Amino acid sequence: MIPGIILFLIFFIGVFGYIYIENYNLIDAFYMTSITLSTGGFGEVKALSPHGKIFTSILIFSGITVVVYTLGNVTKFFVEGELKSYLRWRSMDNKITKLKDHYIVCGAGRTGRKIIKDFLKKGLDFVVVEKDEKKIEKLKDIYRKKLLYVIGDATKDETLLQANVKSAKVLISVLSTDAENLFLTLTTKDLNEKIQVITRAVDASSEKKLRRGGADFIISPFEIAAERMVATATQTNLISFVDVFSKKSRIEGLTFELVEIKKGSQLVDVTLMEAKIPTQTNLIVIGHEVDGVMKINPMSQERLKENEKLLVLGTKDQIKKLIEIALN
Rank of each mutant, 00 (worst) to 15 (best):
E308H: 12
L210N: 07
G43L: 11
M299Q: 06
I136W: 07
D141R: 03
D190F: 15
K117W: 05
G253N: 02
P50I: 06
Q235I: 09
G253E: 03
A154Q: 00
N23R: 10
G287I: 07
T36A: 12
T177E: 07
K53W: 11
K295F: 00
K263N: 12
K121N: 12
K320M: 13
G40Y: 04
G112I: 00
N164A: 04
D118K: 04
K134F: 11
I5T: 11
M294S: 12
A154M: 01
N164K: 09
K98C: 05
S300Y: 12
L83C: 15
Y18Q: 03
S206Y: 05
Q301T: 13
E193F: 02
Q196D: 11
R144K: 06
K131F: 08
L124T: 03
P278E: 06
T75H: 13
S38D: 14
M299G: 11
K98E: 15
T232N: 13
L148D: 07
K305A: 09
W89D: 10
E252N: 01
I60Y: 08
Y143Q: 06
E137C: 01
V293R: 14
K98W: 08
K262G: 02
A225N: 02
G41C: 09
E223G: 03
E260Q: 12
D141M: 04
M273N: 11
L48A: 04
Y18F: 09
V66Q: 11
G214F: 01
N25T: 04
F11Y: 05
K194D: 09
E207M: 06
G107V: 03
R113M: 15
P3D: 12
T97R: 11
S265Q: 12
S240K: 11
E302F: 07
A204M: 14
C106P: 02
F78G: 15
K46F: 15
K316H: 05
D216N: 14
R88M: 11
S240A: 08
